[in-house]
Design a protein around this nucleic acid. Structure first.
Lengths: 339, 339
DNA sequence: CTGAAAGCGCTTACAG
DNA sequence: CTGAAAGCGCTTACAG
């Protein structure tokens, strides 16, 4: 099966390449090409399974119809889900998506951004390390379409769609307070990301507005690369006297899993001795012992808005205002906080 | 910041585009371009942040340095992990990856394959629906590099890297038998996929080689789109008399999760009343109540081999023989089978 | 209504 | 050692 090119069709049908290209791009009517010719071209193309070479088309049109997705880690279920909805939505609108994982490394992230630009993606969706503000500024100056997801740069005016981390942090803490918990710990990674900071602030605000004491010792911030190791000690310090917390807020799904492992290891009963609540979920959190009360993020919405914003900007470059969206989270109550 | 093109460099430096292109592609020495000229070109390029337009380069060279990944569903943790290692490995070798989810729809899969060909990917990694043998044949005839992962076409001679599903199914069943289980059920999706069939055969072989009865009623095959609904009944029928199984083998991670939910719903104690074992895992299977004994798949190896095989074929088209690899699974013993 | 021609930004034989 | 030129496969003003 030989490959068919535009030229082949033109020659076989004794028409110009122009005509073929026009017709196949649905501009036949616009250019008043006879219905008959159009039909012949379309039929021939279909029969020979002709499809335009995207590289050539892209080069010629100055757009590739692909969008780049840069995330910390595609194997994290949260990002995997986002990637899934982004892909679906992008496909619907005629775009393919190429992805790259930054592994939270700003240098890698920058490299991927540039590499994608070379590859002539038409736009970028980025869940950034939040350490590349200069690079983002550069994109803005180039007038290059992009939208930040999950993590944004608070000082920068750009498209983004994120989640209400502050509200989520507050709600999960309030839930604990409503259940009568008095000494509520907070386990997090180092709050380098605004999203993580906001969860902490939410926690603190809930405490504050309920006139509960804020103790520095209740807050454990683990190193992102080494949290599994540090978790052991953090949990111990929280659970044992003098802190002796009766509840723990975990700021990410993997911290929850890790923390629960430690709690089990030291035979601390959840929720009887300590209640736990998780920001975001892992695969089978409803089956875990005990089923884990979690804040849930609207992944689909997030992905859909991201693509919508991006395509909007790609297709009407000049007129578009910066678009921002903050999505609400949702508390799913299960067993890990008791009743 | 204006974009720099090859032409700009050539003009600024008063050399030919040829020279610039050659030097920037590390063919300066080969073409005996003076060290001095080379240095001037490289410096200028670096200073102005020049990067070749990949579309143009691709069109000209006839390769895009991208590989296409087609999987059933990127939001499934198993494929997300594979995607992650494939991306890492591909990047190391200078390739970008574009992905598409088929959602188990053969038509979609075919469309994605063709769309990727139009986009001029250099090779394809496919976890196929296994209903597109014709399309795969077509790829072979075109001499287009591709490797099948996770699912292969048993009747077709092509590159693949899969997992020993038969062995896995056998081991997990044998584990149950070793623990003294007598009536072992098997819950699966419809065995349209060879991988799923093999797991069943493995189960059957374990039974056979231990002189245990094979009962048709012990085997439940659910419809892939509707398994959550059908699970309720399947579990009931297995657990209640007359079948009254004392163990269940689940052939996929999501079936395990779903089945366990039903078992809990009808208050059937695991592992005391019925032991369960899972082929493949979900995020927190070690934390589930009870922690789930599972067959684990070597995702990283799988991804690495896939890329290795593919790149091998892409870069030495003619000489390469078909490469096949079957990876061993691993049984992780936890609590769900008792002791 | 239709075609010849230029152009997208590269790479690479080919000729000196 | 180096450059002019053709070519990759399309798209699209432009001219009739």
């Amino acid at each position: 099966m030989k490959k068919t090119f535009l030229k082949d069709i033109a020659q076989s049908l004794q028409v110009s390449k122009t005509a073929v290209s026009l017709v196949l791009n649905n501009k036949g009517d616009e250019h008043k090409i006879s219905k008959d010719t159009q039909k012949r071209i379309v039929d021939f193309a279909r029969k020979h399974n002709y499809k335009a070479n995207h590289l050539a088309r892209g080069l010629s049109r100055g757009k590739s119809e692909t969008i780049g997705l840069i995330i910390p880690d595609i194997s994290d279920i949260f990002y995997a889900k986002i990637a899934s909805t982004i892909e679906k939505q992008a496909k619907r609108l005629g775009y393919t998506v190429v992805f790259s994982s930054s592994n939270e490394d700003p240098k890698d992230e920058q490299e991927h951004i540039r590499s994608m630009l070379n590859r002539q993606v038409d736009g970028l969706i980025i869940a950034s390390t939040q350490k590349n503000q200069m690079e983002m500024k550069r994109l803005k100056e180039m007038n290059f379409p992009f939208v930040l997801i999950d993590r944004h740069y608070p000082d920068m005016d750009s498209n983004f769609v994120i989640v209400d981390n502050h509200g989520g942090g507050k709600n999960m803490t309030q839930h604990l307070i409503n259940l009568g918990k008095k000494r509520i710990g907070f386990v997090s990674i180092e709050p380098k990301l605004d999203a993580i900071k906001q969860r902490l602030y939410g926690y603190q605000e809930a405490l504050l507005s309920n006139d509960m004491p804020q103790k520095k010792e209740y807050i454990k911030e683990l190193c992102n690369n080494n949290y599994q190791h540090e978790m052991k000690r953090a949990i111990k310090e929280l659970v044992e006297p003098p802190n002796h917390v009766d509840a723990i807020v975990f700021s990410t799904h993997y911290l929850t899993a890790s923390g629960l492992r430690e709690l089990k290891a030291i035979n601390c009963k959840v929720p009887d001795e300590v209640a736990i609540v998780s920001f975001d979920e892992l695969g089978a959190f409803d089956l875990v012992d005990p089923a884990i009360t979690s804040i849930t993020q609207p992944v689909n919405e997030l992905g859909n808005y991201a693509v919508e914003f991006l395509v909007d900007e790609m297709e009407n470059k000049e007129k578009v205002k910066v678009k921002k969206k903050i999505l609400e989270t949702h508390l799913i109550i299960r067993k890990s906080c008791g009743t």
